[in-house]
Computed example of a mutant assay.
Amino acid sequence: MNTRVKICGLTRVEDVKAAVASGADAIGFVFYEPSPRAVTLAQAETLARHIPAFVSLVGLFVNPSKAQVQETLKRIPLDLLQFHGDESPVFCHQFGRRWIKAIRVQRAGQIEQAFRDYDLASGLLVDAWDPERYGGTGHSFNWDLIPSDRSLPLILAGGLSSDNVFGAIEKVRPWAVDVSGGVEKSKGIKDIEKISEFIKEAHRF
């Protein structure tokens, strides 16, 4: 079974079209203003028009207010919510929409605890820790901290590119991989060839 691929942090129509044409399973929009990959609701409305049936649209939030998420859902046809901050399980689950929780891995046992805490999620995304940034660091972490016994689908992120995604999938056996910086020319500007190569390598396993 092919590992699913999410291309995150898209800001341009041509990048959305390229990701879809290359076979991405999911497209991620960042609704976190400090991020260089952030999009406004107006931008997201335009971009979303180019996402066809059977490609999931994911909205990434970092410690949002309830009102922010609700307003986004009114305007953008999100299939899945991704919470990448310090949100509680209760907060994540209140919107009547499927959701995944991202955690920034620092220590042994952290992933197992997250599986228990966020047991109502549709998946758990594991990313590299950075004291100042919530994802998009371009760094990987110690994959040996990832348990083989998983109660939720596991999504691997952090420092992935076409150079290492095959090996990452071979070692970790994730449900999906999530990439942003590894397929960019510059922050928020994707590279069409890098997107294509990444998806080819991810599906080679």
Rank of each mutant, 00 (worst) to 15 (best):
Y32P: 03
D178E: 04
P34F: 10
D130Q: 06
P153L: 13
A18E: 01
E170C: 10
A53I: 11
V30L: 09
L81Y: 06
P131W: 05
G181Q: 01
T46M: 15
G96F: 10
M1I: 14
F83N: 00
P174D: 01
D25A: 14
D15I: 07
F83E: 00
R37E: 03
S65N: 07
Q106M: 14
V90S: 00
S180K: 03
L120S: 14
R98V: 13
Y118Q: 03
H84N: 08
A53W: 06
G182A: 04
F166G: 05
A18P: 03
L78C: 13
P174R: 12
Q113E: 15
G59S: 08
K66T: 11
I103V: 10
M1F: 09
A168P: 02
V5A: 04
E71N: 12
G188Q: 06
K190L: 02
P36M: 11
T72Y: 07
K190N: 02
A67C: 03
Q68M: 13
A114E: 00
I195T: 02
W143H: 06
S162G: 05
A157G: 01
H203S: 03
V126G: 01
V13R: 15
V179F: 08
V90L: 01
V13F: 12
K194S: 06
V172F: 05
G109I: 13
R150P: 06
Q70L: 13
W129P: 03
D79A: 13
A168K: 03
L60P: 03
R75C: 04
K194R: 14
A26K: 06
R4Y: 09
P174K: 14
A128Y: 05
D117A: 13
R97A: 09
S196Q: 12
A26H: 07
I51G: 05
V30I: 15
L154T: 09
S151N: 07
V179G: 04
F29D: 00
W129D: 04
F61A: 04
L80R: 14
Q106T: 15
A18W: 07
D119I: 08
L154D: 00
D149C: 10
L160P: 00
N63Y: 07
A53E: 12
Q94I: 12
Q70D: 08
K187I: 12
Y134T: 01
L145Q: 05
I27C: 02
R75K: 15
K101Y: 03
S56T: 14
R204E: 08
W143T: 09
H84M: 06
K74T: 06
D25E: 11
P89K: 04
I195R: 02
G158W: 01
G109W: 02
V177Y: 00
L60M: 13
A102N: 02
R37F: 09
E201M: 10
D178V: 08
V165L: 01
F54M: 12
E33C: 07
H50C: 03
D86C: 01
L73T: 08
I146E: 02
E184H: 10
F91L: 02
N63Q: 07
S196N: 05
G167K: 13
E87H: 00
G59N: 10
M1R: 15
L125F: 03
A102I: 06
P77N: 08
S148D: 12
W99R: 04
S122Y: 09
E45R: 15
P77D: 09
Y134I: 05
R116C: 10
V105N: 04
R4A: 11
L160Q: 04
